[in-house]
């Protein structure tokens, strides 16, 4: 197995996104590419990443392998790469991860025993969809955060708004379809869902810089799925369970 990236931004974004949920990560490499799927320890959020072989400058994988890393240790190495530096990873016979950063930095990092079990994906229909720039979404999360720990998303036909409510007050941000940062608002049924900013904010910050447009899909009182479109990466799906009246 060997994979070489083109620049370091995509791998940084992936590792940064994963680091918002877990401390240890198991990646699966197959002939098709590298994937990761995992949940945070309290099972509120799930990340599903698929990184196709076509996104790499060089990629080879003769037989399927799993390898586990401590995300903070891996992250430290990856951060030593400049934007343009490629990062090449392979696995040594001594079961170490070989990480070549740029042309001349050759790291060896210990792998951890991977305890990963197959995680399924939430099976839910999505009634509503909002596509907007990640920078706009990041700004909206910041706007809501000043009064609330939770983001409520509401759609009705082709209208939508984000809102939040807390001890100090509340906010409603109407989405303007003429805004060039907003690509689409659509709903098969009026939908309203509330989601924790504690989970949303870090992942949007982590991937936001590399993602252009993001797609939020949800249904009333059902999980939110955010798709980050990163130029070179197949997909990053982030699932977040809702908060519901109890």
């Amino acid at each position: 197995f060997g994979a070489k990236t083109n620049g370091s931004d995509d791998l940084k974004a992936i590792i940064s996104a994963i680091s918002t949920l877990v401390e240890e990560a198991t990646f699966v490499a197959t002939a098709e590419g590298i994937s990761f799927r995992g949940m945070d320890p309290s099972h509120v959020a799930l990340i599903d990443i698929s990184w196709p072989n076509s996104a790499f400058e060089k990629y080879e994988c003769d037989s399927d392998i799993k390898f586990g890393v401590r995300i903070d240790e891996f992250s430290k190495l990856i951060k030593r790469a400049d934007k343009k530096d490629s990062i090449e990873i392979s696995i040594s016979e001594q079961n170490m991860l070989l990480v070549t950063v740029g042309k001349n930095k050759k790291y060896k990092m210990r792998l951890i025993e991977s305890s990963a079990t197959d995680t399924p994906l939430p099976k839910i229909p999505y009634d509503s969809k909002i596509m907007l720039s990640s920078s706009k979404f990041d700004k909206i999360l910041g706007d809501v955060q000043v009064v609330s720990d939770y983001l409520t998303i509401h759609t009705s036909d082709s209208k939508g708004d984000f809102s939040g409510k807390g001890d100090s007050g509340e906010v409603v941000i109407d989405l303007d379809k003429d805004d060039e940062d907003i690509e689409e608002i659509s709903s098969k049924e009026d939908s309203v869902g509330t989601y924790s900013l504690e989970y949303l904010n870090p992942v949007v910050k982590a991937v936001g810089n590399t993602a252009g447009v993001i797609t939020c899909e949800f249904s009333s009182a059902k999980p939110l799925r955010i798709e980050f479109k990163v130029a070179n990466i197949g997909r990053i799906h982030f699932y977040l369970a809702p908060r519901v009246e109890s």
């Binding site: 309290s42 399924p120 994906l121």
Partner: peptide, 11 residues
């Protein structure tokens, strides 16, 4: 009041 749901309950 509101409660946080678990993502695994949608598997």
């Amino acid at each position: 009041s509101q409660g946080q749901r678990d993502i695994t309950s949608y598997f």
